[in-house]
């Protein structure tokens, strides 16, 4: 059984149908990439999975539980973390306070401390800036903070929405290396990206989303050499 299974998902914004009945699955340990152009519905899908948007039809099964029937704030404690588009760190709070909020649903102080040390080890720059306000960090540091904050909930799956957005090429490489290493340490990753080339280079499998439908799916390596993908998303 898949860890995460999306079945016949449809989402409406008023009269407009943004997601038109999609199916996909994520298995434990995988990196799954969801690629597509602006407005294809990628962010909508992630928001629906973590309960910020209610779908009109369909189900989101996470280890067998339908997340569409669970209040959004209870989902993180089930082992699913979401790094939202545009990072959305709490700008008026310190780096440390942001990270502590990531562990909001956890109660064991020793375990939280252990996670904090793990995050500091993965992102040494966050440790240096622990007492700085998150709003004063650079874009790349904010992305690291958003990822660190998500890791503080000790998730079994992490959803990442456009982690490379607005970052310099060097930072993009750094962020993707981190995603890979997060996955290597046992966390499943569902990655939404416009940077199709980078996303496919680290993903196991991928789905291509076009105006609310999944049009192509397959192993990431195959998609990298697929002519349709090359033409539309890789600029070759």
């Amino acid at each position: 059984m898949s860890m995460l299974e999306i079945k016949d998902l449809k989402v409406n914004y008023g009269v407009i149908q943004a997601i038109k009945g999609i199916n996909f699955s994520v298995n434990e340990g995988e990196i799954i990439a969801l690629i597509g152009a602006n407005g294809a519905g990628k962010t909508t899908i992630l928001h629906t999975i973590t309960g910020l948007i209610t779908p009109s039809e369909g189900s989101v099964l996470f280890n067998g539980t339908d997340l569409t029937k669970i209040p959004a704030h209870k989902i993180v404690s089930m082992g699913m973390a979401h790094v939202p588009e545009g990072r959305r760190v709490f700008a008026d709070m310190t780096v440390y306070q942001n990270l502590k909020l990531g562990a909001f649903t956890r109660t064991d102080k020793d375990e939280i401390q252990e996670s904090l040390e793990n995050v500091y080890e993965r992102f040494p720059r966050l440790k240096e800036r622990a007492n700085q306000y998150a709003g004063t960090l650079s874009g790349g540091e904010q992305q690291m903070l958003a990822m660190g904050r998500a890791l503080m909930s000790h998730p079994s799956i992490i959803l990442m929405d456009e982690p490379s957005m607005g970052l310099s090429p060097i930072l993009v490489n750094e962020i993707f290396d981190i995603i890979k290493s997060v996955n290597d340490s046992g966390t499943t990753v569902l990655l939404v990206e416009q940077n199709a080339k980078k996303a496919l280079s680290i993903a196991d499998r991928a789905y291509v989303l076009e105006t609310g439908n999944i049009t192509i799916e397959g192993a990431a390596e195959d998609l990298l050499s697929d002519d349709r993908i090359k033409k539309a998303y890789l600029g070759e």
Partner: peptide
């Protein structure tokens, strides 16, 4: 801290597990 988080960004606060 939950109040501060909600005052800044309700969506992100929800993702932290804040009611």
């Amino acid at each position: 801290q939950a109040m501060l988080a909600v005052s800044e960004d309700k969506g992100a606060a929800t993702l932290m597990g804040i009611d």
